[in-house]
């Protein structure tokens, strides 16, 4: 009752205040009063308040999109602290998974990244590509596909020349503690995660002797940039049954899940450049002489969003074809 009466009073004031205009615009009285009032002289404390609002001085004017209280693709992460995509689609260093979260978002934001990777080996061609979404500094969901071209080896293996093995990886990673850059140097960023992998060549996998065409890796990773030495250190433990990451299926009649190790050591040359080496141990469930993997990599953030990675990889024996060493190139775009 009281409020509605006040409103009525206001309306009557409005009616009084704009009587002369022949075609009265639907305008509220106090708007005109403010228009007419001269700006008070700008004293030091109020000076900024009287400045016109600059379009880019507002937190709303980042280069992202806002969805409610969430910043989409707004960026804000320090360069390279989102890592580069691994061949399995997770944020990491190329072949080893890191505890980093994909995308350039900071807490409260959502970011994403996409990547494409090619590895040229003496007997095989590797193409992988995928996307990842990062939620704050907390959760990463990723999806990747590996297309493994057996080329001439396919004929020798009896699966047909140029037969391409396809593997899908669905990944999730949760940061549980620490920060890769900030905080105490002894507390790394720690993340736990899974990678569920499905071979699209199930019959072939079983013919090769694998127990399964799909499997789920469980990982725990710790990653830290030791600023005082400019060193990036990562270790990951992976509980897995995957043969050649799952390209040759999962487990065998006699062997299943085992604990494996991934390690990375990088040296930060500049904000944009990181060089280093990685090691990844792998099981030999199929008895084909599967080897551990090594790489020496250089990652460069060409722009804030685009990161290129080149590496020399030593993948050992794959499906009895030994000495598979070659070049790895990868491009990642992140938002």
């Amino acid at each position: 009752m009281f409020a509605s009466c006040l409103l009525a009073v206001c309306q009557s004031v409005a009616a009084l205040a704009s009587p002369v205009d022949p075609a009265p615009a639907p305008q509220i009285a106090y708007a005109r009063v403010i228009d007419a009032a001269p700006l008070p002289p700008a004293s030091a404390p109020t000076h900024r308040a009287h400045q016109p609002v600059s379009t880019d001085a507002s937190s709303l004017a980042g280069d992202g999109v806002r969805l409610g209280k969430v910043d989409l693709f707004d960026g804000g992460k320090l360069l390279l602290t989102n890592g580069v995509a691994t061949v399995e689609g997770s944020s990491g260093g190329g072949i080893a998974r890191w505890a980093t979260i994909a995308g350039r978002q900071v807490p409260g934001g959502i970011g994403a990244s996409a990547h494409a990777t090619a590895i040229e080996l003496p007997d095989f061609g590797w193409r992988s590509y995928g996307v990842a979404v990062g939620f704050g500094d907390r959760l990463e969901l990723s999806l990747a596909r590996i297309d493994f071209d057996t080329r001439d080896a396919g004929a020798l293996l009896g699966i047909g020349e140029g037969y391409t093995i396809n593997l899908d990886t669905f990944g999730a990673k949760l940061r549980v503690a620490g920060d890769v850059v900030y905080g105490e140097p002894w507390l790394p960023q720690i993340a736990i995660g899974i990678e569920h992998k499905r071979s699209r060549d199930g019959a072939l996998m079983r013919a090769l002797g694998a127990a399964d065409a799909e499997g789920t890796d469980v990982t725990i990773s710790a990653t830290k940039l030791l600023l005082s030495r400019s060193l990036l250190v990562n270790t990951t433990l992976r509980y897995t049954a995957a043969n050649e990451l799952g390209l040759l299926g999962f487990g065998s009649a006699n062997d299943g899940y085992k604990l494996q190790f991934e390690g990375s050591l990088g040296y930060q040359l500049s904000r944009r450049a990181l060089i280093g080496a990685e090691y990844r141990s792998k099981p030999d469930n199929l008895g084909l002489g599967e080897d551990d993997w090594l790489d020496i990599f250089a990652a460069y953030a060409l722009t804030d969003r685009l990161t290129l990675t080149a590496a020399y990889v030593e993948l050992g024996s794959i499906a009895t074809f030994s000495d598979q060493r070659g070049g790895f190139v990868s491009a990642q775009v992140a938002f």
Partner: peptide, 19 residues
């Protein structure tokens, strides 16, 4: 750059008091 990082390494632990 390595010297830059050495300064940052002294500042980074304070993030918990700043953020």
């Amino acid at each position: 750059f390595a010297a830059q990082n050495r300064l940052l390494s002294k500042l980074a632990p304070a993030s918990k008091d700043i953020i």
